[in-house]
C-alpha cells in the first residue's frame, strides 16, 4: 500500500511538471509570436543586391513639387483614353465606345456614341470633334450632322494623338512611327518623321506617341525612344529638340517616355510618364521647373496620362484608372 502511494505521488508530480512546462511553453510561444509579428517580415529571401527597389525612385523631393491637386471631375466614360478641350473650355473625353462633353463642374452636356474606340480626340473652333480611332480619323458634330469617317491610314496604323489648327489636322501614328498632316477633307498633305529624313525616324517601342501645337507655328512631337521632345515647323521642317533619359526628376525614365505632352500659353511644357508615373513642368527651353504630380498621386497600373492645359493654366490629367479628370494647379512664377 505504501509502495502504491509512493508511486501515485511520483506520477502526480510528473504530470504536474508536464502541465507546468506546457503552460510555460504556451506563454513563451505567445510572447515570441508577438515579437515576431512586429519585426521585419521579409526574411528567407535573396539578399539586398537582388532587390530592385522601384519605390525609392517613386519618392520625389517635396521641394520639387509645385502642383496642388483640386477636386477631380468624373470622366464618366468607359475606359477613357483621350482628353481635349473645346473652344468653350468644356472637356471632351473619349473612351471605349463614346465621347462625352463635360462641363468643368462635372455636368455631362452631351454623349456621343462612337462606332469605334477613341484613342485621341481634338476639337475645332466650331465645335467639330476629330476623334482618332485605331487606324483612322472620324469627324463628329454635336448638332446632328452625320459623322464622317476618313479612310484608314494603313494596316499598321495606331493613332495616339491628334491636333487641329486652321485647315490642318496632324495625327501621330505610333504604329507606323510617323506624323501625318492632313487637310480637313482627310487628304494627306505631308508626312513627318520618315526614316529617310536622315534622323532615323521616331523610336516608338510602345503605343505612346504624342504631339502638341505650340504657340507660334510650331508642332512639338515626342520621340519617346530617345526621351526627347522635338519641334517641327508646321510644314514639317525639323527645328529643335530637348530632353534626356534618366530616372532622376529632370530626365525621362524607362525605355520610352514622355508619353504625353501639353503646352501652356507661356510656352512651358507639361509632360507625363509611364513606369514612374509623374507629371512634370519644363521651361520652353526644356529645363525642369518642378514636378506637378509624383507617383504617389497615381495608381501603379496607370499607363499613359493624357494632358490638357485649360484657360486658367490649370493642368488637367485624364486618369484612366480612376476614370477622372484630375485637376492640378501650379504654384510657381512661370514668367521667368
Amino acid at each position: 500500500m505504501d509502495m502504491n502511494r509512493k508511486e501515485q505521488i511520483r506520477w502526480g508530480a510528473i504530470w504536474l511538471t508536464v502541465a507546468v512546462v506546457a503552460v510555460a511553453a504556451g506563454l513563451l510561444i505567445r510572447a515570441r509570436r508577438q515579437a515576431a509579428l512586429t519585426t521585419d517580415p521579409r526574411t528567407g529571401e535573396l539578399g539586398g543586391a537582388f532587390r530592385l527597389d522601384v519605390s525609392a525612385l517613386n519618392r520625389i523631393d517635396p521641394g520639387l513639387v509645385i502642383g496642388a491637386e483640386k477636386e477631380p471631375i468624373p470622366a464618366l466614360v468607359e475606359s477613357p483614353h483621350a482628353l481635349a478641350l473645346d473652344a468653350a473650355g468644356r472637356l471632351i473625353v473619349g473612351g471605349e465606345n463614346e465621347i462625352a462633353v463635360i462641363e468643368t463642374n462635372g455636368v455631362v452636356r452631351t454623349r456621343l456614341p462612337m462606332p469605334f474606340a477613341v484613342r485621341c480626340v481634338a476639337a475645332d473652333e466650331d465645335g467639330t470633334l476629330y476623334a482618332g480611332h485605331v487606324d483612322h480619323v472620324g469627324i463628329y458634330r454635336t448638332n446632328g450632322v452625320p459623322a464622317v469617317q476618313w479612310p484608314s491610314l494603313g494596316t499598321n496604323t495606331v493613332l495616339t494623338s491628334i491636333a487641329v489648327a486652321g485647315d490642318n489636322v496632324w495625327v501621330a501614328d505610333a504604329g507606323q512611327r510617323r506624323v501625318w498632316r492632313l487637310d480637313k477633307q482627310g487628304r494627306v498633305l505631308s508626312r513627318i518623321g520618315d526614316k529617310d529624313d536622315g534622323k532615323g525616324g521616331f523610336i516608338i517601342p510602345s503605343p505612346h506617341f504624342d504631339l502638341a501645337l505650340g504657340s507660334v507655328d510650331e508642332l512639338w512631337v515626342v520621340d519617346p525612344g530617345r526621351h526627347m521632345v522635338i519641334s517641327f515647323g508646321r510644314d514639317g521642317a525639323r527645328r529643335s529638340a530637348w530632353g534626356r533619359g534618366g530616372a532622376d526628376p529632370e530626365g525621362f525614365s524607362g525605355c520610352c517616355n514622355p508619353t504625353d505632352i501639353a503646352i501652356r500659353t507661356d510656352g512651358s511644357f507639361v509632360t507625363s510618364e509611364k513606369g514612374l508615373v509623374r507629371v512634370k513642368l519644363y521651361t520652353p527651353a526644356g529645363a525642369l521647373m518642378g514636378v506637378v504630380a509624383g507617383p504617389d498621386k497615381f495608381d501603379a497600373e496607370v499607363r499613359g496620362l493624357d494632358l490638357v492645359v485649360d484657360g486658367q493654366g490649370r493642368i488637367l490629367v485624364l486618369d484612366p484608372v480612376r476614370v477622372q479628370v484630375r485637376v492640378f494647379e501650379v504654384n510657381v512664377q512661370t514668367n521667368k
Partner: peptide
C-alpha cells in the same frame, strides 16, 4: 497521450487570436 494533451494546453495558451 499525456504529451499531446500538454501540447494542446500549451497551444491553447499560446494560440493566435489575432
Amino acid at each position: 497521450a499525456g504529451a499531446l494533451l500538454a501540447l494542446a494546453l500549451a497551444a491553447w495558451i499560446g494560440a493566435d487570436r489575432d
